[in-house]
Design a binder for these strands. Structure first.
Lengths: 195, 195
DNA sequence: GACTCTATGCAGTAAATATTTACTTCATAC
DNA sequence: GTATGAAGTAAATATTTACTGCATAGAGTC
């Protein structure tokens, strides 16, 4: 009845995000999803197949959500464009911290087939926007785009991972970044990009 | 004969750094360490005891290595002090990427007793240095130290995790950050701190 | 040499874990 | 109306995994 495939993908994303591939338990996944254990092998063939499907879906979802923002940013002036792109990225990872966790787990583990974008697969819109900013003197001329990009994105991913450190001691709810904290973070990252 | 305790701590740090607590296998640890499986339970009582010992040792080692640099930084002017502290931190995590991996794994997992420093345990030397910089107008007045600190440190940790993305395709060796890349990263982070 | 104590090794055990086997429903196309 | 194949379930299997009981080796002390 219920779409057990989608239920499994969601539950598995949560479980893999917390424990990584080896640490994740299929029983925990099927329990979360509320489906029979057999369904994993029916839909995905193996735990590994399920993992690969989860990673593909996450990367696709994240990419699809970021794409329109990147396109919008590409039409703006370099500084405002970067602001838009990074702010949009922060929105995305705030809304889907599991995706960040999944990517980090994969980077830490020795997973053979990486589902992560490589240095030459970074968003071309931002690459061009950054180059334009460099020509206009808004961004420093000598700094490679890869460095500028990775430094800013890594900061956002890291902050997502350690966001619960901003929680007050008796705050039991998930401590989302307040708009005020967001503003400070964005200002710091954008100042870092400036020439 | 051989100090099996130290061998186990080292091997376990490597294994936990890659797979996290649940994903790590005690057999893999003892194989790496070249000691008998029994030794884990002799020295640490359990897998969990070994993990706790590893985390304590890593945090202590990292803290002890950073401490003198922080003290030196505290005596400098705010900007140069921050530069010294962050540059020293980058040296540390470059030399011991496993420590970063361990902390990130713990932040991602639902481990009950956290071995991570909380927001009020951030290095007091830097807190005071930052406040001094704010009074002198070097650092922005309204931005909380926790934000400025975490944003910069998270960027460094994230870059450590994703550093292999800077490798050229046929580079089989571990792609350490070149001095040139380091310079760009430090410049970007320090510019971000500036008022 | 006997005695003690810690370090180490071997061979196991019980539980956990990924995967498979055999089977039932159930919708839909021919 | 039945053939077909996908979706779902319960139980079993083979392997892995953390952990233990027990024996032994060696070093130091008397």
């Amino acid at each position: 009845m219920a779409d057990s495939r989608a239920l499994l993908l969601d539950a598995a994303a949560d479980e893999f995000a917390v424990y990584g591939f080896k640490g994740a338990r299929v029983q925990a996944i099927v329990k979360r999803a509320g489906v029979n254990e057999r369904m994993i092998y029916h839909h995905f063939g193996s735990k590994e197949g399920l993992y690969a499907a989860v990673m593909l879906e996450q990367r696709h979802t994240l990419g699809a959500a970021w794409m329109p923002i990147l396109d919008k940013a590409a039409a703006m002036d370099p500084y405002e464009g970067m602001k838009t792109a990074l702010s949009g990225y922060l929105d995305l990872v705030t809304a889907r911290p599991q995706a960040v966790a999944l990517f980090i787990h994969e980077a830490l583990s020795d997973w053979s087939v990486s589902h992560l974008p490589t240095a030459d697969q970074l968003p071309p819109q931002l690459r061009e926007l950054y180059a334009r900013g460099q020509r206009e003197g808004v961004f420093p001329a000598g700094r490679p785009f890869e460095i500028a990009y990775m430094t800013a994105i890594c900061a956002l991913m890291g902050l997502t991972v350690f966001s619960h450190h901003f929680a007050s001691s008796e705050d039991d709810t998930r401590p989302e970044l307040t708009p005020e904290l967001r503003t400070h973070i964005m200002a710091q990252l954008l100042d870092g990009l400036r020439a």
